[in-house]
Design a protein around this nucleic acid. Sequence first.
DNA 1: CGAGATTCATGTGAAGTATACCTTTAGGCTTAA
DNA 2: AAGCCTAAAGGTATACTTCACATGAATCTCGTA
Length: 415
Amino acid sequence: MIREACEVFKMVQKSDDLKNFFENFMEKDSLFVDKKVLQINYTPSKIPHRAEQIDMLANVLAPSLKMEKPSNIFIYGKTGTGKTLTVNYITSQLSEVAKQKNLPLVFVYVNCKLKRVADTEYRLIAQIAKELNTNIPATGLPTDEVYKIFINLVDKEKILLIIVLDEIDQLVKKIGDNLLYNLTRLNAELKNSEISIVGISNDLMFTDILDPRVKSSLSEEELVFAPYDATQIQDILRERGKAAFKKNTIKEGVIEKCAAYAAREHGDARRALDLLRVAGELAERKGSTQIGIEDLDYAEDKIERDKVLDVVRTQPKQFQLTLLSILNLYEKNNGLDVYTGDIFEIYRDLCEKAGLATLTQRRISDIICEFDMLGIIHTKVISKGRYGRSRQICLSIPQSTIPKIKEILKEGLNL
DNA sequence: CGAGATTCATGTGAAGTATACCTTTAGGCTTAA
DNA sequence: AAGCCTAAAGGTATACTTCACATGAATCTCGTA
């Protein structure tokens, strides 16, 4: 959204019409009353259809208000089932109560998926420390030194620290469960304070890959978020839609269609909300006063594109170059026979053109793997018998987004 | 014809290297007594 | 003499490279029917 605003901004600037633009912008009748309500990080005052989970989680965490260490808890559920939302809701309530009563209760939330923020053991601890207002250098310290700093920080005075690790499955898949073992042992090192861990995982099978010792101590309690069904999503959309839009903005049947779209994808409420918001934005830009079903279709397309585009944009240069090579080859071969070796050759040429150092094929192989993890491509190692063995790659993004992605990549790489 | 050997291109793990950054320490310089 | 600054020394994490070995089915080889 901001990006779009900037684009519009640039255009307007070019036509030397800036003042006019702002005036129009202010005067223009918006469909929205409060757009925040539909944004993903918004926490509503009540969460429909999650009473059971809220209850359970609140029960588990409640002892913290008596300064007793709550059990560690693990939360499972697919994306958009309200895990993060529920946890945020409860932790913010708890910390408010704690503040009122002057209890040394501290919550820290870390999303473990973020690249270059919390994707290694070192960085995760550093990130938690940062949330506690202590900066730990990005590199240079031994990992156990980082732990020591962290322990001193927490143990300085008696506090009860509750760490929320979102998307922890991603991190463990990447660096192993040793990290979790260290975290659980942390309490033994602490004299004054105590730490509880709330793990959030998208992968329902996650604990299967954990060491039994880690598993038993970390998931003392477990909580599952089942996907919402279509009517539940409708409720959510109505509730939020009421707060976000002006009256009578949403046409008949839009909510239902929106819910149906989302229910198709394992009941992803986040997606449904996104859909509604973007549809609203599109309708607004079109100048209409109501959101119709046709806006939803455009919105769906746009969301899908934006999501991928954002991921692509934030990748490091070498990753972008690799992706561009994949796309080029993909187009050349009509989506057939895309293998590592050929990609590497194209990549090497592109490196030269882009004036970047060429990485080895070994590394490119790993980078391709990481794109697989990101869900941009899908890979399969196949044996071609006499002709060796290779990784077969297919794109898992819609065809329509390819030109746009290429554009972004070329821009980012000065090609 | 078919079982076993061969082959190829690359997957994959382990160990090594370069880089960027950290803390510690020792020496030199400045300052104030 | 004490205090402060700086540069060198010694150390680490991370991204990447190098090396060496593993894979696995198409193809080849050769004995057998």
